[in-house]
Simulated assay, not measured.
Amino acid sequence: MTMTQDVATTAGSEKQKQDGLLLRGLRHPRLPGLGLAAVAVAVAWLIHAAVPVLPFLTVSVILGILSANLPGISAAVEGVMQPGLVLAAKRFMRLGIVLLGLKLSLIDVAALGWTTLGIVAGIVVFTFAGTILLGKALRLPGDESVLLAAGFSICGASAIGAMSGVTKTDHRGTVVPIALVTLCGTLAIAILPALSGPLGLHDAQFGYWVGASVHDVGQVVATAQTAGTTALAGALIIKLTRVLMLAPMVTGAALVQRYRRRRASSGTEEAGAKLPPLIPLFVAGFMAMIVVRTFGILPHVALEIAATTQDLLLAAALFGLGASVQVRSLLQTSGRAILAAMLSWGFIAVLAFIGVQFIPDGTP
């Protein structure tokens, strides 16, 4: 074989190897599910653009639930699509939580003043504890009580995703809490504005009430904007202050988990078992992004790109989680969880209504 032929053979082998790698990549088991999630996110975005009152992330969850329950596509969702949807539900959720930190500036939070900060923190802590007690009274299985508590008290699906990282709950274990917190947050878009007049709330108070009681940021925007820009501005700053509670609440839950595991494994073969981290890596990333936003390290255009990326990641994650919801099974097996969710929703609405009466009128 001549040198020229040898080079040609080697080049041909390299080309075949590259083609083989490309083919295997195109046949990756996660690609179908990720492709479906991407299409669903695009459809959700178009629906939100056409009907802005419908939050982008809420539409994504609904599309996921429909895909899991409509004939013709449900079999594929449970089969070939599942690996990619599981990846989206878990990994994309955590990446989205990290980027959520870029929406928070400690300077804006500090401007609220100690009174308002104390009220918001009290609402979060009392709702969290009250929901856990409700869950235990209703004998909810597994970690449902803790996940519902995180979702209703802090920031909806994002908080449930963060808390599941501490409790080590499988993504399917987060499906019911996320479905319920999404349901209640969607109902709030219609119900809270209707109650504003009878309760005698002026625009700023209504915004504070929405920010203190509604779950996901998108749902807060959709609800508060019905009362104008003053209400929307107040709702967002109160809501983002609740989001700031994500890190300490998750860290507190991690401490409790570590203590329980130490007690359970004391004197057993599991005594040297690995304990959950005090702060999961993605929550540490969330805190780091808050610092980045506070010090103004990134330009405005980078923050806008990050905000859009975060929305897309969370939308894909929520579609993946929604695709795990079997409506018939949910209605048959989750009656107690539905009751707990409704009671928790009512509890935070009442608690927030009382709390906002004491928020100074000068709150930004």
Results as ranks from 00 to 15, higher is better:
residue 227 A to P: 00
residue 280 P to D: 12
residue 294 T to Y: 05
residue 260 R to I: 03
residue 218 G to T: 00
residue 284 A to Q: 08
residue 280 P to N: 09
residue 182 T to D: 06
residue 114 W to H: 08
residue 243 V to G: 06
residue 212 A to W: 02
residue 37 A to P: 00
residue 35 G to D: 13
residue 277 P to N: 06
residue 144 E to T: 14
residue 67 S to W: 08
residue 331 L to S: 12
residue 333 T to L: 09
residue 328 R to P: 00
residue 257 Q to M: 14
residue 300 H to I: 05
residue 148 L to T: 08
residue 99 L to V: 03
residue 209 W to L: 01
residue 182 T to K: 02
residue 66 L to W: 10
residue 110 A to N: 10
residue 259 Y to R: 15
residue 224 A to K: 10
residue 134 L to C: 13
residue 134 L to E: 15
residue 337 A to G: 11
residue 271 A to G: 05
residue 207 G to M: 05
residue 89 A to G: 15
residue 190 A to S: 13
residue 170 D to Q: 07
residue 346 G to N: 11
residue 236 L to Q: 14
residue 202 H to E: 13
residue 349 A to D: 14
residue 5 Q to E: 15
residue 239 K to S: 11
residue 239 K to R: 14
residue 304 E to S: 14
residue 246 L to F: 00
residue 212 A to I: 05
residue 363 T to G: 12
residue 194 A to S: 14
residue 325 V to H: 05
residue 212 A to N: 10
residue 114 W to T: 12
residue 160 I to E: 12
residue 237 I to K: 08
residue 53 V to R: 10
residue 162 A to E: 09
residue 250 V to M: 06
residue 282 F to V: 05
residue 53 V to Y: 07
residue 54 L to N: 09
residue 245 M to Y: 00
residue 163 M to E: 15
residue 288 A to C: 04
residue 168 K to I: 07
residue 44 A to I: 00
residue 33 G to K: 06
residue 121 A to I: 09
residue 55 P to I: 02
residue 158 S to D: 05
residue 258 R to Y: 02
residue 303 L to A: 12
residue 268 T to D: 09
residue 273 A to R: 09
residue 21 L to P: 01
residue 97 I to H: 07
residue 229 T to C: 09
residue 147 L to K: 07
residue 105 S to H: 03
residue 346 G to R: 03
residue 183 L to F: 14
residue 170 D to P: 00
residue 216 D to L: 01
residue 185 G to S: 08
residue 362 G to Y: 01
residue 238 I to V: 15
residue 271 A to V: 03
residue 15 K to H: 13
residue 187 L to Y: 10
residue 245 M to C: 08
residue 24 R to M: 04
residue 330 L to A: 15
residue 166 V to I: 11
residue 245 M to K: 03
residue 42 A to L: 14
residue 173 G to D: 10
residue 43 V to Q: 04
residue 40 A to C: 07
residue 267 G to A: 08
residue 19 D to S: 00
residue 183 L to H: 09
residue 312 L to H: 04
residue 100 L to N: 02
residue 209 W to E: 03
residue 21 L to A: 15
residue 250 V to D: 12
residue 274 K to V: 14
residue 148 L to H: 06
residue 272 G to H: 02
residue 17 K to N: 12
residue 52 P to T: 05
residue 357 Q to A: 09
residue 124 V to M: 10
residue 205 Q to G: 11
residue 6 D to P: 01
residue 317 A to Q: 01
residue 194 A to T: 12
residue 298 L to F: 14
residue 5 Q to W: 06
residue 300 H to V: 07
residue 197 G to R: 12
residue 313 L to S: 05
